[in-house]
């Protein structure tokens, strides 16, 4: 598999610059589906620009975490961005076991937001934080089952190698397993980023919010940081799904780079379409659904294990 570090850096730059555009694509698709014109594709950039020019008001009852949370979340995500193999090029920062580092950087960002939300003492934010923790505890299991599957299929603990290796030919059931695991990764992406069947990013009722309830007290640059990190997280998780589906030996790096970007925006269109045509699940249904996702991810893992000739010996 030919390597060209230039395309990795281009992919990193694309992630940092185009992440809000993905949100724009989702909103535009949603608007098209319901027959509206919708906001401009660049609207998320305008919003961020507006927020960064504003002053920042913080509640006086806070003892600190409220102010740190956005910074911690943004820095955790900016670190996590360094570990994905964009366009199937190995990341220069990769090390053995960075898959776990990646997963827990996302976890750290979430933890900072939760602590910040609890710090305000608002009951809505406490409720949102509680829900966020409950659902993310369930998705984390599924995420690690998927990582386990990738590690087993690629015989590597390195996120870059896991996602950029060609389809392992020694596993007969690999296509079924990859499709299953990528489907689960897509569901994890929807849950982690609060997209529609699990959470509604546009709800205006605090009682039904999950993620939005946690950021009610933020304003100005703080809110801008959080929104930008959310966009970055959406980009990262979509890229993860796309990378799982694109084997590394498919095409030369330049073509892969284009396929990578197209895949991510196609992912945005799919998310927008799902949001336009479906309603969110009942809260009571969610844990059961997430448990199902975990079970399916474990089946994908079992498919790989059985394919290698039976057994973990």
């Amino acid at each position: 598999m030919p390597q060209n570090p230039f395309f990795w850096w281009a992919g990193l730059l694309a992630a940092l610059l185009l992440a809000p555009l993905l949100l724009g694509v989702i909103n535009k698709t949603k608007a098209c589906f319901v027959g509206r014109q919708g906001p401009s594709l660049l609207q998320p950039y305008y919003n961020l620009h507006k927020l960064f020019r504003r002053g920042c008001i913080r509640t006086t009852v806070s003892c600190g975490p409220l102010a740190w949370a956005p910074g911690i979340e943004l820095s955790a995500l900016l670190l996590a961005v360094l570990f994905l193999p964009y366009a199937n090029q190995l990341s220069p920062f990769a090390f053995a076991g960075d898959a776990f580092f990646f997963a827990y950087l996302l976890g750290l960002g979430r933890f900072a937001l939760i602590i910040g939300a609890l710090d305000t003492g608002s009951s809505f934010e406490g409720m949102g934080a509680s829900r966020e923790v409950q659902f993310s505890a369930l998705t984390e299991g599924a995420l690690f089952a998927v990582i386990g599957f990738l590690a087993f299929a690629s015989r590597s603990l390195n996120l870059s190698e896991m996602l950029s290796c060609p389809l392992p030919s020694n596993i007969p059931t690999v296509i079924a397993a990859v499709i299953l695991a990528a489907g689960i990764a897509f569901i994890i992406m929807l849950v982690e980023n609060c997209r529609v069947p699990f959470d509604d990013p546009e709800t205006h009722l605090e009682l039904t919010m999950i993620h939005e309830a946690m950021i009610l007290d933020y304003s100005g640059p703080d809110l801008g940081f959080i929104l930008y990190s959310a966009a970055l997280k959406l980009w990262l998780m979509t890229a993860l799904v796309v990378l799982m589906l694109l084997p590394g030996d498919l095409a030369p790096p330049g073509v892969l780079f284009i396929l990578h970007l197209l895949g991510i925006f196609l992912g945005g269109v799919v998310i927008g379409a799902i949001e336009a045509v479906s309603a969110r699940f009942r809260f009571l249904k969610l844990p059961q659904f997430l448990l199902g996702a975990l079970c399916t991810a474990l089946i994908a893992l079992a498919l790989t294990v059985i394919g290698t000739g039976g057994g973990l010996q």
Partner: peptide, 22 residues
Amino acid sequence: MNELLNLILGALLVLNLLLVSA
């Protein structure tokens, strides 16, 4: 090895999970 066969069998495995949770 037959990919289509494995795909169908994988789908059947997932279907079992869906059946008990429906």
